[in-house]
Simulated scan of single mutants.
Amino acid sequence: MTRNRWTPWDSATADGGGMEAVRVYCLPHAGGSAGSYLAWSRSRQVPGLDFVPVELPGRGTRMVEPPAASMEEVVDGVLSVLAARPEREPFLLFGHSMGAQIAYETTRRLVAGGRPAPRALVVSGCRPPGSPVAMPLHDRDDDELLKGIVELGGTPDEVLEHPELLAMLLPVMRADLGLLARYMEAVRPTVLPCPVVALGGEGDRLSGPEWIGGWGSVTAAGFRRRVLPGGHFFLHGEVDAVMDEIARAAGEHAGAAG
């Protein structure tokens, strides 16, 4: 099977393999790669869920490509992946930080195009659409950009300790934050027909508990929020809880939004 560059670790075939599982497309944070979810894709902790990491241009297995210049470009790629799957196959979208906005915009585009929506949208560590930009660092110099990244946490020490790795990370991070800022300034939130689950870290200074409840305004179906221990990258330390919430959303809304 030829791998789709957007989903390099997708084990299901395009002719209906994995139909018994609910597929969870996992979208990364700014500067992040599909590798953030590689362990999830190999885990059998949650039977019935097939976690599919999504790789954006400019990082990971697509490092030789330039980063995406717009949210439209990213969402077009995700939509192309979904279009290659069986139309009635159940799926969820999960995104952390910038990934949550990608997941929301993908869902909005699916609905606008009359295509099946995800069984549920699960967003993590992110302000709802229409909120002020949380991290306007894309137009700052490298030192200020790096300081902002370090303060958020979540960047491996081996990256911070090696200038050559930082030289690769900073342009991608700058491009992602610019993409996100332009999107957040332009987006006009619409109400989705699928349920939304919003997760946040109790110590997240960017998108903490005071923000995540706002996601309830973008759904006409069920909404649930949950605050977990940790900062902006709380999901790294709360993987079991995050997976449980995804599994709960998949089970609660079986048959929804198809």
Rank of each mutant, 00 (worst) to 15 (best):
A14P: 06
R248I: 05
P118N: 13
C194I: 12
P171N: 01
S217V: 10
I149W: 11
L121P: 06
R42W: 04
E151W: 11
W9K: 08
A84Y: 01
A12M: 10
A83L: 04
V242R: 03
V46Q: 12
A250E: 12
G58E: 11
V74P: 03
P116M: 11
V78M: 02
S124G: 12
E158L: 10
R23L: 10
M173G: 05
L170T: 01
G222T: 11
A69G: 14
D240Y: 04
T155E: 13
R225T: 15
L166W: 10
G77P: 04
M19A: 15
A84F: 05
A181I: 05
G18W: 14
E72P: 03
P28I: 08
A39M: 06
I212M: 12
H138I: 04
M184Q: 14
V75S: 08
F223C: 00
L56N: 04
T107Q: 04
S70I: 06
T190K: 05
M173I: 13
T7F: 08
A167N: 06
S41H: 02
S97Q: 06
L49W: 00
V191L: 03
D141E: 13
V111P: 07
A117V: 12
S70V: 07
E202G: 13
P28E: 05
C26K: 03
P67T: 10
V227I: 15
V52R: 00
L179W: 04
E20W: 07
T2W: 14
F233H: 11
G208A: 03
H96L: 01
G125D: 07
A198D: 09
S131Y: 00
C194V: 12
Y183F: 03
L38A: 10
R44N: 09
H253R: 01
G18K: 08
V159E: 01
A198G: 12
A249L: 07
P195T: 15
R182Y: 02
M98E: 02
R224N: 01
D240W: 05
E245K: 01
A21H: 11
G130P: 11
P90G: 08
R115Y: 00
A83R: 15
E105P: 06
S131C: 02
M98G: 04
H236C: 05
R174P: 05
E105Y: 07
G99P: 07
A14H: 09
A167L: 07
V122K: 00
E185S: 13
Q101T: 04
L110D: 13
P193S: 07
D139M: 08
F51H: 06
K147W: 08
L79E: 15
A83I: 09
R248T: 15
F233S: 12
A254L: 14
Q45S: 13
S11F: 10
M71Q: 00
R248K: 08
P195C: 11
G16A: 14
G114C: 12
A14E: 12
Y183W: 04
R225M: 14
E89W: 10
L110I: 14
A34T: 08
D204Y: 00
L56I: 06
G237F: 13
R23Q: 10
R248S: 13
A134T: 06
S80V: 03
Y183Q: 00
M19V: 08
A21M: 10
P163F: 02
D139I: 09
A254H: 14
R5K: 09
E185I: 08
R127D: 05
W40Q: 04
L169N: 02
A100H: 03
R88P: 04
G77L: 07
G231R: 11
C194H: 02
S43Q: 02
A198Y: 01
